[in-house]
Amino acid sequence: MLAIIKATILDNIRDRKNTMFYIIFPVFLVFVLGNLLSGTFGGNNVSYKNIEIRYIDDGSENTRKIFKTLQDISKQDGKEFSFRFTKDVSLDKAKDDVRKNKSILLHLNGDKIDFYSNSDSISKPSFVFATVNSICRKYNAVTAMYKINPQGAMQSAKNAEESTEKYFTTTKISSNNVTTAMGYYGVAEIGLIIFYFFNMPLYSVIEYRKNNIKDRIRISGIPSRRYYLAVYTANIIYAEVCIVISYLVCKFVIGVNYGNNIFILPLAALPFISIIVGIAVMISVLIKKEETVGVVNNVMQILIIFLVFVGGGYIALTGNNGAFFDIAGKISPLKWFNEAVFKSVYAADNSYLINFLIVGAVISVMIYLFISVFSRMEEKYYE
């Protein structure tokens, strides 16, 4: 059995065209897509320094106090953000500037503050809105306290004036914990290429049959079960080595962030490879005719393209993509693989990885039993 494993691995390596494809293609995709689509990932590229806020003052005493607090917060030293304020007189002109230049407009309108922003701009307006809303809620809380406990409310207002820091808190998130385009595709494209290891065991078995190598192995006394299990094992080893090489190039040459534990992605790849290679070996056990195998392979290639898409191999898919795509995504091994790696790297949550390893082990045992049962039927046929 060890001789068959060695021979199968060497045969795969001798196919230099495919071997180079499996190693280089994911690296190429990671480099191109990671750089090309870097702007679609927010990451840490958004600066909150000198955010321009236009305002119109038609407000009451209360709204002016709120606005004054917003100005005071921006003046504090050591902040990771700051605001620049420009006063407008014409509301229509200010709204037009919001439409054209993606400006942020605050209209102090009596006891209300009307907020205007451009729908094409999200990050900065959301930050400003959250800040203003936080201040408003603080003042509303103090106003409600005045009705119940005037003395306590006065103390709260005094504390608020002494420290505008208390209106909200900010937390800096390390860039290592933010998913960038390079980080996303560094995982997704390696997962994508795992699907294409489906071809190797399928055509390896066909080639052995065409050259009567399979018959010679059977005549030598090696059971079909051991032969198929050897092919299964050999292709898992070959695929894992190719993936690890691509992974190391992405990590140390391109600089993709895979976290501090270098074993996370290779571990997550094992159950994925086991499932894909196992399905190919099971098909080769069941189907003997080369023409039929070709038809099945064509169908599988279409299915693989679909599973890659819903698994996030081409574009990053978030939730709410429709019931059909959400359900389809849950059955894609690529989706399981992505989540296992991302949760471990960016959230320090290894539960997904552990669950994926368990699922992969269970499926591998089922594949082993399938191969054992049906290959013994093949042996009885030849007897």
Rank of each mutant, 00 (worst) to 15 (best):
A3M: 12
T8M: 05
T8G: 13
R16M: 09
F25D: 00
P26A: 07
F28W: 07
G39W: 09
G43K: 14
I56C: 02
D57F: 08
D58Q: 11
G59A: 06
E61Q: 14
N62A: 12
F67H: 04
K68L: 10
I73R: 15
I73M: 15
S74M: 07
S74R: 14
F83L: 11
K87L: 07
D88F: 11
D88K: 05
L91K: 11
K95F: 04
K95I: 15
D97P: 01
K102H: 10
D111Y: 07
F115V: 09
F115E: 10
S121F: 00
M145A: 12
I148P: 00
G152L: 06
A153S: 15
Q155E: 11
K158N: 15
E161F: 13
E165C: 00
S175M: 02
E189C: 09
I193F: 04
V205T: 07
E207S: 07
I222L: 07
R225K: 06
Y227T: 15
V231P: 07
I245F: 05
Y247V: 10
G255Y: 08
N261E: 12
I275M: 11
K288Q: 13
T292E: 01
M300E: 03
L303M: 13
I304C: 03
G313H: 10
G319M: 09
N320I: 04
G329W: 11
N338L: 12
A340S: 13
V341L: 06
Y346F: 14
D349T: 03
I354T: 05
V365H: 13
F374N: 08
